[in-house]
């Protein structure tokens, strides 16, 4: 047990040192890299490691006679969570999310320290000491709190009420509900039933299973199937349409959506919000092809009421492209990013 705890303590000490370094900006956040593709689990595992480390550290300290009181353990852990979220995770997490996480961790810490009567008594002890002190440092501390707490409350209220010169927060509906049908170049398309006419198998029938086998390997940038090369001149059907779609993409779309379809095109940072990142699992990966068709054809101007505040400079491409070109470019986007359009069944 002691061996296990000392390993834990070592892990905890190193981790804490790294974190302190990140807080003081001595060490960059990506010293321990957040590995692409594993980040969410990596974050959870890191926090678990920290918890194990803290358990080890507190065990070692108490066996050395320097036990950390439950009160400081609780406050310390909560402070750790806040600092970890602010300084270790990159890019920076928005304040609203950190506030939610901070509140939940505060509740969790409270549940931990008050889980049974003994622990709760131990936790309350330092507070009671200050509140009940008749003499000494604790009494001074009580008077100091008497002054400090109103000052803190006043300062926080002042800060909250002070007019700020920042732009106000925008709650944007990223994927507004599509209309039941849309009219492009004189023809009406029912979004629930229309299909991409170019997502076809060699027999010419719509076949998503077939096309799914020929796309690029997600996140890896290499072809899934060895003979699925769109640049092969002898291609017919799906792969040929992918290539044609690619040509259209690089003539029209890559200026904003980027060469790697990651929303980092030439003009990307001239806009707010920046153009959609197709490699993100939250964009084309979870949408139906007809939704994309509607968005591409109608652009930002064509967003419905629900798309408030219509902060999209997506051009209405029906003014520049034919319907076939739109379908092909969508085909290409899915091929390149290695995603499948969402289906109903």
């Amino acid at each position: 047990m002691k061996a296990l705890m000392s390993v834990g303590a070592l892990v905890g000490a190193i981790a804490l040192l790294l974190l302190v370094g990140m807080i003081l900006d001595v060490v960059p956040s990506n010293t321990v890299r957040l590995v692409e593709g594993y980040m969410p689990i990596q974050m959870l595992l890191e926090v678990a490691c920290f918890v194990a480390g803290f358990t080890g550290l507190s065990y070692m300290l108490s066996s050395m006679g320097m036990a950390v009181p439950r009160f400081w353990q609780g406050i310390g852990f909560w402070a750790f969570v806040l600092l970890y979220l602010k300084f270790r995770v990159y890019p920076p997490i928005p304040f609203s999310v950190r506030a939610m996480y901070g509140t939940v961790s505060l509740v969790a810490v409270f549940m931990w320290v008050s889980a049974n009567e003994d622990d709760w008594k131990k936790f309350k002890q330092p507070i009671m000491n200050v509140l009940d002190a008749q003499s000494g440092a604790n009494k001074m501390l009580r008077y100091a709190y008497l002054v400090l707490i109103p000052v803190l409350v006043g300062f926080t209220s002042f800060n909250a009420m002070k007019p700020k010169s920042e732009e106000p927060i925008e709650l944007r509906t990223v994927h507004p509900a599509p209309p039941a049908s849309t009219k492009v170049h004189g023809k009406t398309y029912t979004l629930q039933t229309s299909q991409n006419p170019y997502r076809v198998n060699p027999e010419g029938k719509f076949d998503q299973e077939y096309s799914n086998k020929l796309i690029v390997e997600q996140g890896m940038g290499r072809l899934m199937a060895p003979n699925a090369n769109p640049w092969d001149e002898k291609n017919q059907g799906y792969l040929k349409y992918v290539k044609e779609g690619g040509e259209i993409f690089f003539q029209n779309c890559h200026f904003c959506h980027g060469d790697n379809l990651n929303g980092r095109g030439l003009h990307a940072f001239a806009f707010n919000p920046i153009p959609a990142n197709f490699t993100d699992p939250g964009t084309i990966a979870q949408l139906q092809e007809t939704f994309i068709f509607w968005r591409v054809a109608k652009g930002g101007i064509g967003l419905p009421n629900e798309g408030f505040p219509w902060a999209s400079v997506m051009p209405p491409w029906e003014q520049h492209l034919t319907v076939d070109e739109i379908w092909k470019v969508i085909l290409f986007e899915y091929w390149h990013t290695g995603y499948y359009p969402r289906t109903w069944d």
Partner: peptide, 23 residues
């Protein structure tokens, strides 16, 4: 999935979705 954030935070994040928390 869509976080409430100020435009400054949006720029710092480099996009609408956070690469870790978005997941």
């Amino acid at each position: 999935h869509t976080m409430v954030m100020t435009p400054a935070e949006l720029k710092a994040m480099g996009g609408q979705q956070h690469p870790v928390l978005g997941n």
